[in-house]
């Protein structure tokens, strides 16, 4: 058949499209379970990293189940949402992505480390090129940070992407979110500078906008848990 024939051309294009569509759909279908598993394990690794635990992909799930004793949703007023408790990946706390839909409640994860209860909260914000997010682990006084882990989608390697390094996240240990019973959050400042009205950490040199994004995320995203944290603080006293 003549290659330049109209009918042949249309037939060729149609068949090609159908074959490609089937191939891609089939691939996606057969791989999606494995992909979701990877996403979940990655999330568990992030939560564990905020607890200063670097779990490999093989041990992440067992370590997570060992340390996370409880997880649930809370309202912006700080009250636990009825029926939201559960630590499985299908339960509300793990399944909720606060960047997408926080209407049902804000996730809180409770871990037991060295006999203490540590509360891990997810955070979500905007970097320079795309979203940034992380997990902040807080002591039972609702103010002292135990650890923090940050991630990003497409920040510049060597600059904004440095927020994902332990050198950056490690600065948060021991910092306080509250001062004089007010939620002040933790500031991310230009390296070398300082602020006096709240605790601060050094930003990334050359990664100003990403650092500002982390600053805003700590203020606004963690700020959503203000009432929950204040209740913890009051209960401790």
């Amino acid at each position: 058949m003549n290659r330049e024939n109209n009918v042949y051309t249309i037939l060729y294009a149609s068949i090609m499209v159908i074959i490609v569509a089937v191939a891609l759909a089939f691939t996606h279908q057969s791989l999606s379970e494995q992909q979701t598993k990877n996403v979940n394990i990655d999330k568990m690794q992030q939560i564990l990293r905020s607890l200063h635990i670097n779990a490999s992909t093989n041990e992440a799930e067992s370590k997570y189940n060992e340390l996370i004793k409880n997880s649930y949703l809370v309202t912006p007023q700080g009250e636990k949402v009825e029926g939201s408790e559960g630590t499985k990946t299908s339960d509300p706390a793990f399944a909720t992505d606060i960047a997408v839909d926080a209407s049902k409640g804000l996730p809180v994860f409770e871990a037991e480390i060295e006999g203490r209860t540590i509360y891990i909260l997810p955070m979500s914000g905007k970097g320079l090129w795309g979203p940034i997010w992380g997990y902040i682990a807080i002591e039972s006084d609702g103010s002292t940070v135990y650890g923090a882990d940050f991630s990003h989608q497409g920040e510049t390697p060597g600059l904004g992407a440095e927020i994902a390094t332990p050198q950056f996240g490690g600065q948060f240990g021991g910092k306080h979110l509250f001062r004089d019973n007010t939620f002040t959050s933790i500031a991310v400042v230009k390296p070398g500078q300082s602020v006096s009205d709240r605790d601060y950490v050094d930003g990334i040199s050359g990664g100003t906008i990403t650092s500002k994004g982390v600053n805003a995320m700590l203020l606004e995203s963690v700020g959503q848990y203000k009432n929950f944290l204040m209740n913890l603080n009051a209960a401790k006293k």
Partner: peptide
């Protein structure tokens, strides 16, 4: 296809 395989086996 490469991207899907990476997401599944080399996350």
């Amino acid at each position: 296809l490469v991207s899907e395989v990476l997401k599944a086996f080399a996350y």
